[in-house]
Structures are given as structure tokens and as C-alpha cells.
Nucleic acid binder design. Structure first.
Lengths: 216, 216
DNA sequence: CTTCTGAGTCGACACGGTGTCGATTACTTT
DNA sequence: AAAGTAATCGACACCGTGTCGACTCAGAAG
């Protein structure tokens, strides 16, 4: 039912030694996948493209991963930690003004999408055909929306944010959706620091006006 | 290069008579496709599912359509007109307050996604693997963003909307992205009039606060 | 009424990708 | 050096695609 990369750890950090050849080829498959995702979608990538890139035969692939999707799952996990970090930036802000912490969090998200756009795009796309990826994103979204909604309610209770409606949870939901789809689209275009900065400013502005009612 | 449903008209309105059998089967394929999209994604649908649903053999499919994607394109065109209508609602508002025209436009969009969610979702998904669909959406997005940005600038010039930054075009872009992805997600869930209404209110609120700075 | 034409249909085929299995080889461990 | 487990491979059966040439059949032309 559940299934993940089936070869549980494949840790790079952690255990000393025991770089047991298998880990090396798993790693090679992952690297090849990440490289290929820069030019093709996941289901345009054939298994033998993954394995020939790693110097092994096609059938050996199935020793390391259950499916193409399992590879994507493993790649996504490498990246998702970064997502959580950037999300945490808004929360637990000190006496810093909201504008700064929100801008920092959004800038971090945009940067992450710039860096791992292909993987994140593939992960998003796989969400509605693959149950493993659906669960993965459901978990990510749950944490994001929960903590954002909670933060909105705190700010409202403190009289800093404008009160509802809209309901805090749904507001959090649409704002996070907005960020995701804006980042998705951004990562499709050619890299441009100026446009990225403008995107960060635009998203920040929408967040500030929607939650606090002010443009800082 | 370009290619569409290859059998150009397949019009239902227009020509009297000449319901030339071929049009009937094309239509049957389209109907079957729309029905199947309610439960599967486009590339999970095999050609013989489409044709057996229409009572013909698999190979006959290729007489009527060039590919599965061409079927989706034909389906999308049936729906896109509705999109344009709802977009036009904000523009050319009379003396009506912005809150009302924006709410009406968003409500129409949400309703359209409720009605044709499966097709629209498939069309969105096909966007980044199929060039025909990419061009189709590029055209839709272009019209939407252009006219929205233009409207924002008009309202700013009139002193009704808060001035930039953010740049009107990019603001339009992220707001429209937000609407699309919110509708996409909404159409995945079970139909609920209450939730739909709440979504409309939330999106409207974000638009109003982002563009006009007020919740009306 | 026949004949011709082309729109519409079909079965057969070659191709390419998937996933599995049993056999084989390469490392470790004692 | 022997034993066992980790990793690899080729072969195979399966499934979906797209193409091709042959067939059918309705309606226009004679």
C-alpha cells in the first residue's frame, strides 16, 4: 500500500562507512533523475534513461526503487526540509515587523523553487495521479496551512491583523496556493534576479494587504 | 506543427443537416472522454476506453483525432468561452462598486470550475507536457492578465486603487494564478455550496485588499 | 438502376516501454 | 576458503500506441 523508496535509509549523512555500493547506485539514479527532470516530465522519462545514466541495466532499477514515482518521492524528501524551514520564518517572529518576516519567508521559498524547480514541479504534478505523492503533499500542505492560519489568528487576536471574514484557515489556504502556483510558473521561466525580486515584493504585498490590511 | 481536432468543424450549431455519421462518433468520443475524465487523468485513459465507449474499434479513433491530447483540446474549447465571459465581468463595470463586479466574476469562475472541473483540470495538467495545450493556455492567460492589469491601472489612475508597487501586470498575474489554483483545488473536493460561497468571499477579499486596499 | 467515390471502419502488425523471474556474479563476514 | 547476502543481468510476457492496407457502405453522377 504505502511504499517508499523501499531501501529505507540511503543516507548520505549518519552512518560512518558502509557506503555499500547499492547506496552509490541509488544515489546515481537519483542524480540522473534530477538531471533529466530539468528537460522532461517524469512520465516522459523511461526507466532505461535512468539506469543507463547510472551505468546499470534496466532491470536493476527495480532492485533499488519500486517505480519512477518512488524516485521522485525520494527526491522530494531531500527538498521538503527546505520548505519547512522557510515556512517557519513567519512564525515565531520576534518584535520584527510582519513585513520583514513575511518577505524573508517568501524570498526563501522563491529561492528554493529557483534551485529545485524541476523536482518541485514534478512533485506537484505527480500529486494528482500518485497516491504516495498525494499523501506527501497533503502532509506538507497541512503543516503550512495549519501554522499559517494559527499565526493569522494570533495576529488578529492581538489586533494587528484585520479580523475576519475571511476565515483564517481559508485565507491561509488561498495565499499558500497563490505562492505555490506563482513559484511554479516562475520556475518555468528563465532565471532573472530582477523578476524574482519583483515577484517576492508582489507576493509579500498581497500577503500584507490581505492579512494586515496595510502595505507596511 | 499546430494541429487541432483535424476534423475542423464538428459543429453542433451552424450547418443544418449533414449530421454526417462521423460527427456523431466524434461527438461520442468527446462525451466518453468527458465522462472518463471525472475519474481518471488523461494519460490514464487508454484509447480503447474512448472508442469502446463510442462503440467503434480502437484504430478508428485515429481517423477522428490525432491524439488523446487533441480530444482534450476540443473539449477545452467548448469550455473556454465561459472563462472569457466571466473575465469580462470585472472590466467595463458601470458605476457599480468594484466589490460587486469582482465578486460576480469570481463567483462565475468558481461555478464554471464546479461544472467542468475534470476537463479544466486535465487541460491545466496537459499544459506543461503538450505544446498545443501550452499555446491554448498561453492565449487564455494573456487575455486575462492583460485586461486585468489594464483595469488595475485605470483604477489606480482614477485614484480608486492603491498605487504600485507592485507593478500592475505582476499583481494581475499572481491574483489570477491564485484564482486558478484555488479553483483547481476546490474542484477536487466534494461539492459544497457553503464552502464555494466561502471561497468566493475569501478570493474576493484578497483581490479587494490587494488592489484597492480596502475590504469594502 | 448501376456505378463510382470517398468518408468511415476494421484487423493485423511492428514498435517501444513496463515489470517480473530465475540465474549469475560480486562483495562481506567469519 | 566457505557461506551467505547484496547487486546485477538477460529473457520473457504483457500492454498500449500508431500506422497501413483492405473493406464497407451511403449517396452523387451517370
Amino acid at each position: 500500500m504505502c511504499c517508499m523508496s523501499q531501501r529505507a535509509p540511503l543516507s548520505s549523512a549518519g552512518s560512518r562507512r558502509k557506503r555499500s555500493k547499492g547506496d552509490l547506485t541509488s544515489q546515481a539514479i537519483l542524480d540522473t533523475a534530477e538531471r533529466l527532470l530539468e528537460t522532461k516530465s517524469l512520465d516522459e522519462i523511461a526507466v532505461d534513461e535512468l539506469t543507463s545514466g547510472a551505468g546499470i541495466s534496466r532491470s536493476t532499477f527495480y532492485f533499488h526503487f519500486e517505480s519512477r514515482e518512488a524516485v521522485l518521492y525520494a527526491l522530494s524528501e531531500r527538498v521538503s526540509e527546505g520548505l519547512y524551514e522557510s515556512a517557519a520564518m513567519w512564525l515565531r517572529r520576534g518584535s520584527e515587523p510582519p513585513a520583514d518576516s513575511i518577505r524573508r519567508a517568501i524570498a526563501a521559498t522563491v529561492a528554493l523553487w529557483r534551485q529545485h524547480g524541476p523536482v518541485l514541479r514534478a512533485a506537484v504534478r505527480a500529486r494528482d495521479t500518485n497516491s504516495m505523492m498525494r499523501d506527501f503533499w497533503a502532509d506538507v500542505a497541512h503543516r503550512f496551512i495549519d501554522s499559517t492560519a494559527q499565526q493569522i489568528e494570533i495576529e488578529r487576536a492581538a489586533g494587528v491583523a484585520v479580523p475576519g471574514p475571511p476565515n483564517a484557515r481559508m485565507l491561509a489556504n488561498v495565499l499558500i496556493s497563490m505562492n505555490e502556483s506563482a513559484c511554479y510558473n516562475m520556475s518555468l521561466g528563465r532565471k532573472s534576479a530582477a523578476r524574482d525580486r519583483e515577484l517576492v515584493e508582489t507576493l509579500t504585498s498581497v500577503w500584507l494587504r490581505s492579512v494586515y490590511g496595510a502595505s507596511d
